[in-house]
Design a protein around this nucleic acid. Structure first.
Lengths: 228, 228
DNA sequence: CGGGTACTTGACAATGGTCAAGTGTGGTGG
DNA sequence: CCACCACACTTGACCATTGTCAAGTACCCG
């Protein structure tokens, strides 16, 4: 598949005229990454941003003691690292591949020129950043207003929403990473999954989870307490 | 002061040519609000966004039990409610004045037209949204990786940074609101301030706080524990 | 001066993190 | 093909942090 075709398939560039797409394709730098490699680190000078063509990248913050809070996972078609392009300066978080990945890198200055010329590209980026702000809004809400069982329930419902079929879903990440995404630790996830299992709300088999009682999950996600 | 002059003083519109400024001024709706009035609520259909001309607005989320997490305070010159303009749909949080305020309202469709025509306005909005994303990133980090004394220390340092003179600062909000901004409750704030006082790190007199030991505060903000 | 709100303080409970000691399980090399 | 190792995961005991509830004090505004 040519670079041009790949670019055309990226939501961020959706709806752009062919001429613009070609210009974008011209400045893309194709970069392969092995699994588990840092793409950039917090505080590093930002010279551009990335789009995931294949694979998966995690964006995270580290505490002084090394505990990590995952902000989100970036999958094929999604971009990351644009914030410093507009806000200026440095990356506000760390990025690391969790699978063998292929990324396109877009140098800052060249890309800025494109945006300044093309309002529709700017509109796409505005929509993208706005959606991300909304996700963060929800994330802050969940971290501060909900306890872990609620967050986990919400996440399972979210996964099942975009999964195939009924209540069968498979985690694409380890439970440790799930814990970090929900702002907690693997032990807590283990305990809560065990509790949910024993109450026949879900059934867990390795990384496969089936939802047995969706209504109960929804109640939990809305703030109801998980019984002992 | 004319609407035009007020518009010209808003950072979001900084650097726009006079012609654009006039167009923006033409669509602004001048709206006064008394103290403590809702501007919009979460989930409401968004028909535009707001800029604070004077006064102060709090943006917050509510849990199912009514506990509130303040996302930020918006002061003169700053805007809020733009997310649904680009992401579509509804407001992701609540907005309420905490002082008698004067707001300008910009209807969505008209403003979108302006942006689509003018890349420099789009660039300003991109910079604005990016800065906000960065603040949220830090907020998520603090909520999940730091304990309350660290968050409070960081906030005091942040205030003293933008305050006049040395270590003298005055809270512009109640301690209850401060608690909600830091993702906790007034009692906890009380206790930690008392502890910091007794260790001569700060001195508290009503809403006036003096920093006596900045180094210690910086250590706390970096994750060090507050002694008993 | 009164009344409401903000704030403080104490006793208590619980959520969830830490530490430690396991139990799988998948992948690699012998 | 199997043994072994590393790593993910589980489970238990413990405890720190922080939220809840209750009561009382200070303070501002009319």
């Amino acid at each position: 598949m040519s670079i041009s075709e790949l670019i055309a398939g990226i939501p961020l560039f959706d709806g752009l005229p062919q001429k613009q797409l070609d210009e974008v394709a011209d400045i893309a730098v194709d970069r392969p990454f092995p699994k588990g490699q840092a793409v950039f680190s917090e505080g590093e000078e930002a010279s551009g941003f990335f789009v995931v063509i294949s694979g998966q990248v995690k964006i995270f913050k580290l505490s002084s003691e090394g505990k990590e809070q995952i902000l989100h996972f970036v999958s094929a078609g999604e971009s990351f690292g644009e914030v410093p392009m507009f806000a200026g300066g440095r990356f506000p978080a760390n990025a690391e591949t969790i699978q063998k990945s292929r990324l396109f890198f877009f140098p800052r200055t060249v890309f800025l020129r494109l945006i300044k010329k093309d309002p529709s590209l700017a509109m796409n980026m505005l929509a993208d950043l706005s959606k991300r702000l909304r996700r963060f809004t929800r994330m802050v809400e969940e971290l501060s207003l909900k306890e872990v069982p609620s967050r986990l329930a919400a996440y399972l419902l979210y996964l099942s929403g975009r999964a195939s079929g009924s209540g069968e879903l498979e985690l694409s990440i380890t439970k440790g990473q799930l814990a970090s995404l929900l702002g907690t630790i693997p032990e807590t996830i283990s305990r809560i999954l065990a509790k949910m299992s024993s109450q026949d709300i879900i059934h867990v088999k390795g990384r496969k989870i089936s939802i047995l009682n969706r209504k109960k999950l929804e109640e939990l996600s809305a703030g109801e307490k998980l019984a002992e």
